[in-house]
Design a protein around this nucleic acid. Structure first.
Lengths: 399, 399
DNA sequence: TTGTAAGCGTTATCAC
DNA sequence: GTGATAACGCTTACAA
């Protein structure tokens, strides 16, 4: 005999289909739809659910307590008797309970998840940064969901949408090569989701950024080439829209200017960071009427391609051609007599980026957060750029 | 005037605090607590929620329709008039609506997320596999949540717990060095979460696996050394608990046996895949009374360490010492005269693993899924192992 | 210390 | 074609 839970009527009840496996009723008296409250019997079993995961309700039922009690016990809430608490904990392990993070996140509007968008995974740079990020985040109890833009603007937009849909608590990003429009990141900002950019940043967005001193690194690299007697130094640069390209180019020109060299625009090439393009532009440079005697490349993969190209042409490195890269990829130490390069603190970069995003998430009011953190680079001098004699001469002259 | 929603009484109603900003009442007649159902007024505003994300209900309210209508419109359900549909879609973009994947996942018990657990990120192997995985998964509309065990058993257990809590639809995993107990993976299985192991698999779990033919690769490598006249070939192996170590060792011994060589247990070393240990064991091997004239290393980082060690000792490679690695890391092509190594199809491995997990997720009944997929390897012959004269002699003798 | 019930944002079922 | 309502699994304010 079914009684309407609203008007207590008994006679005017009609069956009205099933909802999620439970009989549904309609009270014709008060025109009210309802299902019967789930019976609180300890042995109540969901009959037709496959692979049912244990919930706090299951624990509550087997113990004959309310789900709030269970919730409190599970979270070590102070207002609960030690006995109940232990009882709950025991049955939880007994029933192999695993909390449902989804339900938690839904109710708390917190996912404890940070999203990171990186352009690629092929050079060791981004994986290394991620290692640093993850170290800090997992310590703080956050998960990391990693997405690749694959250097595509459209994919990057999709990534940010997915971040939004999954309600990540914060986003870490490094821009794709194609990205020139930043609306998708502004959409995140607008919703109050903190973002920290690293490495491939953009000046248009005024959030916090973590970068290395690209200018300084490039400056040191080119000055080092000058000190080794190279006089016609080319720059195989990156795409002009990236700040790292701009800064490294600026370092290059500044170093030349400081030492009284002219800037030759024909020796400045804008490429795309890949070895394929480096090969083409490298050929072009070395085929010039007056080819350069040194090349400062925007990153290690392109520098290595130049090294390979030089070898195939019978050019001696460093005698005929000096080469300096940027990144200190592991391979740089081992290729030929070693590639001189600018080392970036990738791991540290990851850690600092992660710390920044955590700070942004946890700040109550608008605390002060540094606009941009600039990490220092280190010039690692190896065989591809050291011409002993010149170095001596130069240092002599400067003393 | 408040009426009890249960007994319809009007006089015995008392105010009884607030719940989530709504007045709560107690009916003294039937002793029933209740709040008034949320008014369906179009202009009802959540008064005190900061950073409120637009929901389906907001759209419904502004349009004066029900949320089911909105839901249907957003999902392109057939039973909806084109006008309403367009109206909903328009206001959705207007209000900048972003679906809440959490709520969706909660109700559907589907997250559209796959978790992957990898031991490390330092060698290019795992990043490369991940690239392949992600290619397939993102095509299928799945996200990837990446976790690192950092070669630690405890972290790996934590990772699986987190996967469970986040209710991922499937798990891809490669075991940590420390892992000897597989209960945490069995716990996933028990809950019906599909798992696919790759590369570092374990025989105890009988789920699907994707591996390369480690045996065959090792066999080819060692046979190649024999053909180049090396007669005392050592094996710098991996940890004995990993199947890859076992298989590569098996390939090593089989190749020796096939060519009538004795197995010298003192030439078989179990290390841990790292360059640090490789240095120590490498020293040990080269310091032997009768040192080996060739070393087959379990992976490239260790092989490269041997190369460096040999150089520092003035040993000529390949004349005095032959070296073969396993993986074909990018660096292998460039170090010294090149490192001979066994190439693994990392990208393909990722793609196949991803396809397998998708198949497992989508299969209705227990469809047949291959137990294990074995991918072929390729021996990449470079300078570290080719002694022309010996090769000729050997081939002569075998003709 | 424990219980009650709302609500987080969705989907699904049935009635109309 | 549209609306009403429950349910997904959890936290929490308030009352007892």
């Amino acid at each position: 005999m079914i009684r309407c839970i609203k008007c207590e009527q008994v006679d005017m009840i009609m069956k009205a289909g099933f909802v999620r496996g439970k009989q549904r009723y309609l009270c014709k008296e008060c025109n009210f739809y309802f299902t019967l409250p789930t019976p609180t019997l300890p042995s109540a079993i969901h009959p037709k659910r496959r692979r049912h995961q244990t919930t706090i309700i299951d624990i509550a039922r087997t113990l004959g307590v309310s789900n709030s009690t269970v919730s409190r016990a599970l979270h070590g809430h102070p207002d609960i008797s030690p006995e109940t608490r232990q009882l709950v904990l025991d049955t939880a392990t007994q029933l192999d309970y695993q909390p449902n993070q989804l339900a938690y996140s839904l109710v708390k509007s917190l996912t404890n998840t940070i999203g990171i968008i990186v352009p690629e995974f092929f050079t060791p740079f981004f994986p290394n940064v991620i290692v640093g990020v993850q170290e800090v985040l997992s310590q703080a109890g956050y998960h990391l969901i990693i997405m690749q833009s694959s250097e595509s603007y459209d994919t990057e937009v999709g990534n940010t949408k997915a971040m939004l849909a999954n309600r990540v608590d914060g986003v870490i990003a490094s821009l794709s090569l194609q990205t020139n429009n930043y609306e998708h990141f502004k959409a995140l900002e607008k919703r109050g989701i903190p973002i920290v950019f690293f490495n491939r940043v953009c000046q248009e967005l005024n959030g916090p950024k973590v970068v290395v001193n690209d200018f300084g690194g490039a400056f040191k690299a080119v000055e080092h080439l000058i000190q080794n007697g190279y006089r016609r130094i080319a720059h195989l640069g990156g795409p002009p829209n990236l700040v790292i390209s701009q800064e490294r180019l600026r370092g290059y020109t500044s170093a030349l200017q400081k030492h009284g060299f002219d800037i030759h625009p024909e020796l400045i090439i804008h490429s795309d960071l890949t070895a394929q393009k480096a090969r083409i532009y490298g050929q072009y440079l070395l085929d010039m009427e007056t080819p350069p005697d040194a090349i400062f490349a925007v990153n290690d993969p392109t520098a290595i391609e130049i090294l390979i190209l030089a070898k195939s042409r019978g050019l001696r490195v460093p005698e005929d051609l000096g080469v300096v890269g940027f990144s200190d990829d592991p391979i740089a130490a081992h290729i030929g007599n070693g590639l001189t390069t600018v080392r970036q603190p990738t791991h540290l970069m990851g850690k600092i980026t992660a710390e920044m995003i955590l700070k942004l998430i946890n700040e109550e009011e608008e605390q002060w957060v540094p606009e941009a953190k600039v990490l220092e680079t280190e010039l690692i001098i190896r065989g591809s750029s050291v011409r002993e004699s010149y170095d001596a001469v130069f240092n002599e002259a400067n003393r």
